[in-house]
Design a protein around this nucleic acid. Structure first.
Length: 777
DNA sequence: CAGTGAGCGAGCTTCCGCTTGACTT
C-alpha cells in the first residue's frame, strides 16, 4: 500500500496525476461532493443556529466506503480538490466524513495538471480554509432555503411539482421578459437608398461600385423626391479614405464560450456540447471542460507557439495572456484546450472530431498575431443634395489568426464587404440603378440555449457545471420550450431609378423565422409573474451578485455565515408565510369577453392539463365548455376570435360504415376518430373544413399502410409479430420492440430466430424502460 | 399514443454545484 493518498475530484484527473507522482502515491477521486443537505425536509436545523444536516449522497456511499478503506492504510492524506469555494468544501466534507486527523492531512491546490504544478503543490501544503468552507455552506443553505420554501408555495398556488430557485427562476424571467418585449415591439420603417455605380478602370474595363446613401428617409415621399433629384444629378468621387484596422483573436474557451460557439458553428445544444466535451476529456484529448478561466498554462502556450511557427511561421505568433472579465469567476482550472497542441485532429465520433477541431483552432488562434486590415471608404457627392453615397470595402493585409479561426456572432445579418475598385478623386460615376427600399427595424432576438447561458454568465448567475442542467430544468418544468416559428411575410415598398425612370412597386419578403429558440410557455408566464409579485428580491437580476458580495466577506472572515443567513431568513421567511396565507390561486385567468352565441363569459386560464379556453363559469348552473389552446397560442395574447375558433372542434363530419366520424385536435395534432381508432390528419388539410370524403380517404390510406405493416406472424395467437416500421422491419412482442440485426432477412425469420433476438435484447429493453420512467419523473 | 378541465382526497413533488454513468444519436 502507498504511504500517501491523494484525493481529487475527477477520476480522469486522478489517472493523469498518478502518472506524475509515482509509486509512493495512490490517487483516488471523490466524484465531486460526497455529502449534501438531507432532503427529508429542509435539511437545516433552524432551532440550532441553522446547523446543516449533512448526509452522504446515496450515489456516493460506495466512493466513501472505498476512500475510508484507503485512508486506513495511508500515512498522509492529501486533499487536492479544486481551489475554489466548492472545492474547499469538498475537502472539508472529506476530512469530516473520513474522520481525518489534522496532523496527517494536507490540503494542496493546483490550477493546471502538469508535473511541475503538482510537485510544487506537494511542496506547499496548507490547512483547510474554514472561512472559505463557511462561504460555501452559506451558499448551499441559502439555495436550499430559497428553493425548498418557495417551490411548495407554487405547488399550492399554481400547480404541483413546479420549482423555483435562485438561478432557474431568473433564467425563466429573462425569457419571459424578452418575449414580452417582442410582443410589444412595433417595427418602424425607413427608406434605405443603395446604388450601383459603374466606371472604367485604368485598362478601360468596366468596374462596378455598390454604395449606400448616408441618410435613410423616413417617408416614401422623401425617398421619391431624392430619386427624382438623382435623375439629373452628377455623381463625383468626393474623397477616398483609407485607414488601417486590426482584428484580435478571442480568448481560449471557457464552458460558456464553448457552448456558444458550438451552438453557432456546429448547431450543438448546450447539453450536447457538454456530453461530447466530457468524452474528449475522459479520453485525455482536452483539459477540463467545466471552467470559467481563460488562462493557459505556460506549457500549453509554448507548445502552441511551436505549432504556429511550424504551421505558419514566426510572424504569426503573438503570445497573449487573457484575463477573465466575467463576474464571480473562481478560476480553479485552465481554459478548455487540447491536451496536446500538436494533435490537429483526433479519432472518435464525428461530433468529437468537430468539437475538438473547434477547440484546437480557438486555442491556437488565441496565441496568434492580429489580423491587419485596410478599410476603404469612397464618398460620392450627389449634385443638388447634401447627402453622400458611401462605398466601403475591407481588405485583409495580413491574415494573422484568421488563418485558422474566426469567432461567429449571433447577429444573423452582418454584411460582408470586399475589395473596392481603384478610384480617383473627382472621378465621375454613372448610376446603373438606384434603389430606395423600405426597411424595418428589428425586434430583439429570442434567446437560444447558448445565448441564455451567456446572459446568465454576464449576470454572474450559475456556474460552469450548472449551465447545461439549468437549461434542461426550465425545459423539463415546461416553463420554456425550445422551438421554431415559420417566417412571416410582409410587404415593403421599393422605388427604383433605372434608365431615367422611377418605378414604384410593392414587394414582399420573409422575416422573423426562428429555429431552436427559447419560447416561454404559459405556465412559465404565470409562475414568473407570481414570483415577481411576491418575491421581487429573489427575482432581481442583481440578487446573486449581492449575495456573492456577502459570501466574499464570509470567505475573508469578516462575517459569520450563520449571521448572514440569519439576517436573510428573518426577512425572507415571513414573506413565505404571508404568501401562503394570503395569496390567491394563480392560474393566469384572463377574461376575453362573452361568447356571442350563448352570452356566457369567455376566458382563458391554465387548466390541469395545460392552457384552456372556457365558455361560462363554474358557478353557473350549466357546466362550462372547455377547449385546449393550440401549441403556438398563449393565454397572454390570444384574441377573442382565436379563442372562439377553438370551440369549433370536435366536429361531427358524417358517417362511414355506419359509424360516426369526429374531427378534433389532440396531443399529436389534428385527427379523425372513427370506430374507436385515430387517424392523423396531414398538415395540408384544415381540420375546420375537412369533408367526410377526405376523411374516408385518410382512413382508407391508413388501413392500407397497416396492411403492409405486418410482414409475418407465427401461429394463431400472433404474440410475436414481424412489422414494418419507420426505421425498417422490427419485431414486436408484449408491447416491446426489438431490432432485427442488419444481416438477417426479416421476411425469412423463423419464430425461433425471433425468440432468440428477443432474448438477446431483453436486457436492453428493460433498461430503456427504466430510463424512460426516470426521464418522466 | 390522441376522451379529460372535478376535489371523499393518499403521497409525492422542490434548490444549486461538485462529479460520472447509462442512455440516446
Amino acid at each position: 500500500m502507498s504511504k500517501n493518498l491523494v484525493i481529487v475530484e475527477s477520476p480522469a484527473k486522478a489517472k493523469t496525476i498518478e502518472k506524475f507522482l509515482g509509486k509512493e502515491y495512490e490517487v483516488m477521486s471523490s466524484m465531486g461532493h460526497i455529502r449534501d443537505l438531507s432532503d427529508k425536509g429542509l435539511g437545516i436545523d433552524f432551532d440550532n443556529n441553522y446547523a446543516p444536516q449533512y448526509e452522504v449522497s446515496p450515489d456516493k456511499k460506495k466512493v466513501v466506503s472505498e476512500l475510508k478503506k484507503a485512508v486506513k492504510s495511508a500515512e498522509t492524506v492529501w486533499l487536492a480538490s479544486d481551489e475554489d469555494r466548492e472545492g474547499e468544501a469538498i475537502a472539508w466534507h472529506l476530512a469530516e466524513e473520513l474522520k481525518l486527523k489534522k496532523e496527517n492531512t494536507k490540503r494542496i491546490v493546483f490550477h493546471e495538471i502538469t508535473k511541475d504544478a503538482i510537485l510544487r503543490a506537494i511542496e506547499n501544503p496548507r490547512e483547510i480554509d474554514k472561512n472559505l468552507v463557511d462561504a460555501q455552506q452559506a451558499r448551499r443553505v441559502l439555495d436550499r432555503i430559497v428553493g425548498f420554501e418557495i417551490s411548495p408555495i407554487l405547488w399550492r398556488k399554481v400547480r404541483p411539482s413546479l420549482s423555483a430557485g435562485r438561478v432557474q427562476s431568473v433564467a425563466v424571467r429573462l425569457i419571459v421578459e424578452r418575449e414580452r418585449e417582442i410582443n410589444n415591439f412595433v417595427a418602424e420603417s425607413s427608406y434605405k437608398v443603395s446604388a450601383v455605380f459603374t466606371s472604367k478602370d485604368a485598362n478601360g474595363t468596366q468596374v462596378v461600385l455598390p454604395a449606400e446613401l448616408s441618410k435613410r428617409f423616413k417617408t416614401k415621399e422623401e425617398a421619391y423626391a431624392f430619386l427624382e433629384l438623382c435623375k439629373n444629378a452628377q455623381f463625383l468621387v468626393d474623397s477616398i479614405e483609407k485607414k488601417p484596422a486590426k482584428k484580435s483573436p478571442a480568448p481560449p474557451f471557457t464552458t460558456s464560450t464553448l457552448q456558444q460557439e458550438a451552438s453557432r458553428k456546429l448547431g450543438f445544444s448546450v447539453s450536447q456540447t457538454m456530453r461530447v466535451a466530457q468524452q474528449l476529456y475522459e479520453s485525455g484529448k482536452i483539459t477540463y471542460m467545466r471552467t470559467d478561466s481563460v488562462n493557459l498554462s505556460g506549457l500549453a502556450i509554448n507548445t502552441a507557439k511551436n505549432e504556429i511557427i511550424s504551421m505558419a511561421g514566426e510572424e504569426y505568433v503573438k503570445i497573449r495572456k487573457f484575463t477573465t472579465r466575467s463576474k464571480g469567476a473562481q478560476e480553479a482550472h485552465e481554459a478548455i484546450r487540447p491536451t496536446y497542441m500538436n494533435a490537429h485532429s483526433v479519432s472518435g465520433t464525428a461530433w468529437e472530431k468537430r468539437l475538438y477541431e473547434l477547440i484546437w483552432k480557438r486555442t491556437i488562434a488565441s496565441q496568434m498575431a492580429d489580423a491587419k486590415l485596410e478599410k476603404t471608404n469612397i464618398y460620392i457627392n450627389v449634385s443638388g443634395s447634401k447627402y453622400q453615397f458611401v462605398a466601403s470595402g475591407e481588405v485583409i493585409v495580413f491574415d494573422g489568426f484568421l488563418k485558422v479561426y474566426l469567432e461567429s456572432t449571433d447577429d444573423e445579418n452582418t454584411e460582408k464587404s470586399g475589395i473596392l475598385p481603384t478610384m480617383k478623386k473627382g472621378e465621375s460615376l454613372a448610376p446603373k440603378e438606384i434603389l430606395a427600399q423600405e426597411r424595418f427595424t428589428q425586434r430583439p432576438p429570442r434567446y437560444t440555449e447558448a445565448s441564455l447561458v451567456r446572459k446568465l454568465e454576464e449576470l454572474g448567475i450559475g456556474r460552469p457545471s450548472t449551465y447545461a442542467p439549468t437549461i434542461s430544468t426550465i425545459q423539463n418544468r415546461k416553463y420554456v420550450e425550445k422551438g421554431n416559428r415559420p417566417a412571416l411575410k410582409r410587404n415593403f415598398n421599393e422605388l427604383k431609378l433605372k434608365s431615367g425612370k422611377i418605378t414604384d412597386s410593392k414587394k414582399s419578403e420573409n422575416y422573423g423565422a426562428e429555429k431552436g429558440k427559447l419560447f416561454p410557455e404559459d405556465i412559465g408566464l404565470v409562475v414568473n409573474d407570481f414570483l415577481i409579485e411576491y418575491f421581487p428580491n429573489i427575482m432581481d437580476y442583481n440578487f446573486t451578485a449581492n449575495v456573492e458580495v456577502e459570501f466574499d466577506q464570509i470567505a475573508e472572515g469578516k462575517v459569520k455565515w450563520t449571521q448572514s443567513i440569519d439576517s436573510f431568513y428573518k426577512r425572507f421567511h415571513p414573506v413565505v408565510e404571508e404568501t401562503l396565507k394570503n395569496s390567491e390561486r394563480h392560474v393566469g385567468e384572463r377574461i376575453l369577453g362573452v361568447d356571442p352565441k350563448s352570452g356566457r363569459q369567455l376566458s382563458v386560464k391554465i387548466g390541469r392539463y395545460g392552457p384552456i379556453a372556457q365558455i361560462g363559469t363554474s358557478d353557473e348552473e350549466e357546466k362550462p365548455l372547455f377547449a385546449s389552446l393550440r401549441k403556438t397560442q398563449s393565454i397572454e395574447n390570444i384574441t377573442q376570435e382565436e379563442a372562439l375558433e377553438l370551440f369549433k372542434l370536435p366536429r361531427e363530419i358524417g358517417d362511414f360504415e355506419g359509424k360516426g366520424m369526429t374531427v378534433a385536435i389532440g396531443r399529436f395534432g389534428p385527427y379523425v376518430r372513427h370506430d374507436g381508432k385515430f387517424y392523423s390528419i396531414p398538415k395540408s388539410d384544415d381540420p375546420l373544413d375537412i369533408t367526410a370524403e377526405r376523411a374516408i380517404e385518410i382512413i382508407e390510406a391508413k388501413r392500407e399502410a397497416d396492411k403492409n405493416k405486418i410482414i409475418n406472424t407465427f401461429g394463431e395467437n400472433e404474440e410475436i409479430q414481424v412489422l414494418n416500421g419507420r426505421y425498417g422491419p422490427y419485431i414486436s412482442f408484449e408491447k416491446n420492440n426489438y431490432k432485427i440485426p442488419k444481416k438477417m432477412d426479416a421476411k425469412a425469420l423463423t419464430e425461433e430466430q425471433c425468440r432468440e433476438i428477443i432474448a438477446s435484447q431483453a436486457d436492453k429493453v428493460k433498461k430503456k424502460k427504466s430510463y424512460k420512467r426516470r426521464k418522466k419523473a
